[in-house]
Design a protein around this nucleic acid. Sequence first.
DNA 1: TTGTAAGCGTTATCAT
DNA 2: ATGATAACGCTTACAA
Lengths: 353, 353
Amino acid sequence: MARTERAQRGGHPGVSIEDVAAAAGVSTATVSRAVRGLPRVSPATREKILRIAGELGYVASSSASGLATGRTRTVGVLAPYVDRWFFFKAIEGVDRELHARGYNLSLFNLGGQRGARERLFSKTMVYKQIDALLVLCMSLTHEEIDDLQRIDIPLIVVGGPVEDCPSIGIDDYAASALATSHLIKLGHRDIALLHGQDDSDLNFAVPRLRVEGFTDTMAKAGCAMPAHWDIYGNFTVGSGQEGFDELWSKPGRKPTALFCASDEMAIGAILQARRRGVRVPEDLSVVGIDNHEFSEALGLTTVAQDPVDQGRLGTRMLLDELAGATGSVRTTVASHKLIVRETTAPPRLDKQG
Amino acid sequence: MARTERAQRGGHPGVSIEDVAAAAGVSTATVSRAVRGLPRVSPATREKILRIAGELGYVASSSASGLATGRTRTVGVLAPYVDRWFFFKAIEGVDRELHARGYNLSLFNLGGQRGARERLFSKTMVYKQIDALLVLCMSLTHEEIDDLQRIDIPLIVVGGPVEDCPSIGIDDYAASALATSHLIKLGHRDIALLHGQDDSDLNFAVPRLRVEGFTDTMAKAGCAMPAHWDIYGNFTVGSGQEGFDELWSKPGRKPTALFCASDEMAIGAILQARRRGVRVPEDLSVVGIDNHEFSEALGLTTVAQDPVDQGRLGTRMLLDELAGATGSVRTTVASHKLIVRETTAPPRLDKQG
DNA sequence: TTGTAAGCGTTATCAT
DNA sequence: ATGATAACGCTTACAA
């Protein structure tokens, strides 16, 4: 199908490099160099070419240059969800860095359907379509990892450790230890735990680390926790609500504080506590991890992390690697910080251990 | 640069259609037909080719086929934000539909920096890179619209009307009228308004329509609203909090109800009200629009809409259009529904009009 | 049913 | 500094 035929059939061939070359009276090679800002073009011709290209509205075809160079100038972002705080924040950071450096972002969202990983991630989805891959806080099967390694493009995971892959994220263990000791320093000893696993099994490491940080800190402080204070949720607000009800409906002593493995669960728990007439922090202190958008409004004490920045940094490493700086991609730990607000206070004297 | 050279230089040529053809003892044309499921291939050869392609791990180069066909099989998604409820929900719907039909999603996020449109959307960003464009609830400048029309690819905006563009979204006027009359039917006459404009001026229509729905309904019911009950926010939780404080700090009579143009503002207002000792709904009824994730947990009465579905439907129209069904893309109105929960109740008798 | 071969719009090598 | 020209890997008339 020749260009002329396409045009005849009502297609939209657009203006090609050849059109520009013809209009400028130079070769396509020169146009190519000129528009890409490469050397070996005299200032005069460059200016002329740029002007004409502008007039004609020339934009290089990404398919064509992709084919010629073997690079697509797009990086893939693989996310288990796109509607959860950490994820959309990270995506924002990734997008910013990517477009700032002239790259495109191709989004692959595995989630959507809650309950199980709906779409499997196959190499065909990205093979020859992206220059690098950024994985958002999810574990990969061995098969997926192997596939990815075989493709051999720069890869980084943002938001949690995955074996055999470089990653960037906070030290989840330290973060939850920090939240827990904040509670302990306040005088709490009767602390319940609201944690759990992501619905779709997408990352086991982060939840586990956050629990271990809690458990170890409790143990070190000599605090024991009855088994029925160990509540299992799934990192959503809804499960935070249910978690609170479960905790409070059980007979026996109540805790004076609640450690939640994520702000979303903490928010759910607090909302439900208030609904049940349990005052926060007077009757129950609550602490979370993340510093979700809504946490400030609620006055939630939490350990903050910055997913935007993690996304940006991860992207930067990927792009540097692509730019030839071998070794740019390496496992990095991002910072976290305790933010004390209004949902934590010393336990009431009559309840103190 | 020949294939062999690339390989020698440590590049990763991958397995090409030619490799498959050679291994199968057929021509590339046949391989092409076979792998794409086209007719005119005998069952036997097809099976053989598929097997070999599988063994070799063959995946067609999107650049090459894009160049050959003039189609990229990716659609662009232009979003003012990616970290706001409507937007990430819509993106989820878009992504689902897209990948289900073998398309890729290229994300362009204009936001990030709050305060002003940071990145301008230029035709060079998408020209020749996408087959269709889905715009998420933002107004475009005339220049941008012109550019887009000139590119002449299917276009739809999801989440709000934009002049001269087909769109899908709820009837924002009707939705806010519905929320308002819910309040009025409950017996409220002293109703305050929390509305505003998106930070970055990204869509004027939606906020305006929601205000008009409120204002007209109030007028029809013969309710007057003092000017200082007209509070201006920016659709965020934070501005909901500030809005409440502004409303409550002013001297004079207090309203018995508050209409918020979005759930996020409503949530902020409620949280702040409680913090100030104002009970919801006893002292103040609050209603929102959207049915945000957190609204159920808070018990917020609201008018629900389903962005996931809007995104999916918008995408479907785009893809149908690309599949040749001319006229598939057309302005459509999505449904909304009042959900009465716990933040609205009749006004207290001593305060009734 | 299968193969041949001409494009698709760039980039990059090598001359000039 | 500039130009010819051969790739890049696929699709698609058209011929066989």
